[in-house]
């Protein structure tokens, strides 16, 4: 009873959007292979894990329940999914490419002699699976060599969730065999470092600054531009890692997700971790010295040049136009 098993994950706010996108990837794979899509998820007793699924429903759901899975641990989830996968023998197992999946799925796959194809952006005939390499500078396609289940994680936003009306499906309960001693880590309660004082998600315009700025002392250049545009200042991860701007200004997978009317990327190459946080912006402008930088793939307007010359000129031009 070979199937495509899609694993549920809910965000902290209860949103299951990334799961629904992963289900869409599963349906794409179903078209190509003729296999049925089934869903699996971990949940406390009584919770209907699959209640939020919109559009075409999976053929079946598998609700994994165990008191030792109340808080996520890599050990608990690896054991539980290993047992479910051995029972169902799916041909493909799909996860959202989340921090949680990245924490345990590579080990789970290794247990089956498999390697995860991670952060998949597209599924083609074959089937083949596309993912990015070299910080987005190359796109590669992979296929599974066979001989066991194929483990995939699906990039956030790469597939569009089916928005049709929901429905029902048969759900069976699965209780894995788990012992307390098998859970070797003790996770604490998640917390936020400091109260977020900068809400970039509601900004109309953002000037994002990246590694190309080279030196904290050059930041006033982009601050002036942001000032002239009436924009908030955002940054890619390395800028915040260096302590040049506070972490709360970070845009990307480990920072904030933004969708302003205007996103102006200065000296940002466009690694995937940054792109997922800003590619939904209405208008994207990139200033970068490297014409091959992946940021230009998502930009509406681009200037290839030295930001130390272009940014002051742009600040003047914006001031002159206002």
């Amino acid at each position: 009873m070979s199937c495509i098993l899609v694993v549920e994950e809910a965000r902290r706010d209860g949103s299951t959007r990334v799961f629904q996108e992963t289900l869409a990837a599963g349906r794409r794979l179903a078209e190509l292979t003729g296999l049925a899509v089934e869903a699996a998820g971990v949940g406390e007793p009584g919770r209907n894990i699959f209640a939020q699924i919109t559009g075409a429903q999976p053929a079946a759901g598998h609700a994994i329940r165990h008191e030792l899975l109340a808080a996520y641990t890599a050990d608990g989830y690896t054991l539980a999914f290993e047992q479910l996968i051995r029972r169902l023998e799916p041909r493909y197992v799909l996860f959202p490419h989340s921090y949680q999946a990245r924490d345990f799925v590579p080990g789970l796959a290794a247990r089956f002699g498999q390697a995860l194809i991670g952060d998949v952006t597209a599924i083609g005939e074959g089937p083949t699976f596309a993912r990015q390499l070299y910080q987005g500078r190359m796109h590669a396609t992979y296929r599974h060599a066979g001989g066991g289940p194929c483990f995939l994680s699906i990039q956030n936003g790469a597939f569009r969730a089916d928005e049709g009306a929901g429905g029902t499906m048969p759900v069976s309960e699965f209780t894995p065999a788990l012992e307390p001693a098998q859970i070797r880590t003790r996770p604490g309660t998640p917390f936020r470092e400091t109260a977020q004082t900068v809400d970039l998600s509601s900004a109309q315009r953002i000037v994002g600054v990246g590694r190309g700025i080279k030196d904290a002392e050059k930041l006033p250049l982009v601050e002036d531009l942001a000032g002239a545009l009436g924009a908030e200042l955002g940054a890619s991860r390395p800028i915040c890692d260096n302590g040049w701007l506070p972490m709360e200004r970070q845009v990307g997978s480990s920072g904030q997700t933004v969708a302003p009317k205007l996103y102006l990327a200065v000296g940002i190459s466009g690694a995937i971790q940054h792109l997922v946080g800003m590619k939904g912006s209405q208008c994207i402008v990139a200033i970068n010295k490297d014409p091959d930088a992946p940021i230009f793939e998502v930009a509406d307007y681009g200037i290839v040049g030295d930001l130390f010359e272009v940014v002051p000129a742009l600040t003047e031009a914006v001031k002159a136009a206002r």
Partner: peptide, 19 residues
Amino acid sequence: AIVLEGMAAPQKQKSTQIL
């Protein structure tokens, strides 16, 4: 367990106007 089929520089998702 997984085989690289091919690799290429990415195609642009949008038509970027280079100024």
